[in-house]
Design a protein around this nucleic acid. Structure first.
Lengths: 129, 129
DNA sequence: CCTTGACCTTCCAGTCGCGGGAACCTCCAT
DNA sequence: ATGGAGGTTCCCGCGACTGGAAGGTCAAGG
């Protein structure tokens, strides 16, 4: 049994975030007589699980699903794999979009003298050519 | 002089977005006697500028700055270039972060049988190894 | 015993860039 | 006159927190 500070330390999540996760029902630590949250090892374990899943970019709702799959002994790994693949596909498309932006920016930056002259191809392009 | 619908059509921005841009002071179309916004060509031009800059991932505040640089005849292109480079660097770091996530996900997905057996390396990893 | 300071609590507001929808007004064509 | 397609303002909600105010609790030190 530990306080939120210790749980934060161990899980790597800010205390604020842990309170938020409790509010939305991702963890449910019991309370001490003084009203302090009392985190068990299982709670901290859950929090660390959440920290890792969030670090991989899964949404909160995906995390909720992953946790329930994790806690369901009779789960099939196929569902987890599908979820991970869907997420990976979304990351791929975000990367593609960013790379497109980056490519355009590179062109513009390269075309821009970047000196004191007021003639700027970047602005010219943004203005419509 | 045109209504918000026509301005939306021409600029490629939803009418809602255009109203929002007016609210935060990015555009200031005059009003007709009936209260309708009356967009001039310069307003639509600004909106198209904003649409392009947003499409390149610049934040609203960056867009505001870019517009003011664009409208300042005495601007130096160096400042624009700096802004674009800063933005490009941020995109690079976001891409790097996503690629890191993607790499980890790939490993996990590859390791996961994805069949009906309940033994899932993805969940095992999230749970801490 | 009292105080200090670190920690805990709740609650409210703000972030970013809009989107949804209600309630109402205006214009044009039939 | 009426219907429908536009326009208007207003406020709420999203995701996933983060910051801050106001106050309760606890262990240590003077």
């Amino acid at each position: 049994m530990m306080t939120i500070g210790a749980a934060a330390e161990l899980s790597g999540l800010p205390a604020k975030t842990i309170r938020y996760y409790e509010e939305i029902g991702l963890v449910s630590p019991p309370r001490d007589s003084n009203g302090y949250r009392a985190f068990r090892d299982t709670d901290v374990h859950k929090l660390a699980f959440l920290a890792r899943a969030r670090g991989l970019g899964f949404s909160i709702e995906d995390c909720r699903l992953l946790m329930s799959l994790y806690e369901d002994r009779h789960r099939a790994s196929a569902e987890v794999r599908r979820l991970a693949q869907r997420h990976a596909a979304e990351i791929d498309s975000r990367i593609a979009q960013l790379r497109q932006m980056r490519a355009t920016l590179s062109e513009l930056i390269e075309a821009c003298a970047g000196d004191d002259r007021p003639d700027c191809p970047i602005l010219k392009d943004l203005a419509g050519g």
